[in-house]
């Protein structure tokens, strides 16, 4: 999966899917939006998934079909399996330590590397690609630009998703609460002072918009 030692396997599968994509049966989806081949209820009434299954995810408001295995993380599904890929969500540690893969799951912040893609069926997933409303950037995105809140930029999507989840749920969030909201994100360039400035500016912009 995200495991570099094994990513070769996944890449070749992705290549295969790319070429065979047109052949993949797009039959009627079951209740859980899973293809029938490798899932289903056996005699004991327990749904079982194994091997490759096709699921439908709600990503940034659109339904997207993707073939995954039960072990495929949401991060891997976004970056390596969906065509075209949603690579704005970054993979760094793949162990829930760095925050680069932060997405919103039903409006709550989550590490995409610690979620199974099959568990995300029926949930609303927002990635950095879906945060802006058309051309209108989210206040956090705007503030990051205005306050130069990034250096190399690799951690930025994660920080933006963590802070936007906090502010969308709590527009009156204080600086301490904003810091707590992105405590699970790491910036190795050390741009924290600008990130916090941007977070406060975004909070003010949100509050202003509310009034």
């Amino acid at each position: 999966m995200g495991d570099p030692k094994r990513s070769g396997v996944d890449l070749s599968r992705r290549g295969f899917l790319k070429s065979a994509g047109g052949l993949a049966a797009g039959g009627a989806l079951g209740e859980s939006a899973l293809s029938a081949a490798n899932s289903g209820l056996l005699g004991d009434g327990v749904e079982r998934l194994s091997g490759e299954v096709e699921i439908e995810l709600t990503l940034n408001g659109a339904k997207r079909k993707v073939k995954v295995e039960p072990r495929t993380t949401l991060l891997s599904a976004l970056r390596e399996r969906i065509e075209p890929p949603l690579s704005g969500t970054k993979e760094v540690c793949d162990m829930g330590s760095c925050g680069a893969c932060t997405v919103h799951v039903d409006q709550k912040p989550a590490y995409a590397c610690l979620l199974l893609a099959v568990d995300c069926v029926g949930k609303s997933i927002t990635t950095i690609e879906g945060l802006a409303k058309g051309d209108e950037l989210h206040p956090v995105q705007k503030a990051f630009c205005e306050h130069d809140a990034l250096m190399c930029g690799f951690c930025t999507p994660g920080f933006v998703m963590a802070l936007s989840a906090c502010l969308d749920a709590k527009p009156e969030a204080t600086l301490d609460e904003l810091k707590e909201a992105c405590a699970g994100n790491v910036c190795r360039c050390g741009t924290y002072p600008h990130i916090f400035e941007a977070a406060v500016a975004a909070q003010r912009a949100k509050q202003g918009a509310k009034r």
Binding site: R6, V46, E47, R48, S50, E69, P70, R71, V118
Partner: peptide
């Protein structure tokens, strides 16, 4: 990660 079966009991 090794492949596994995911069982989804409801009780």
């Amino acid at each position: 990660m090794k492949a596994f079966e995911l069982a989804r009991p409801v009780t």
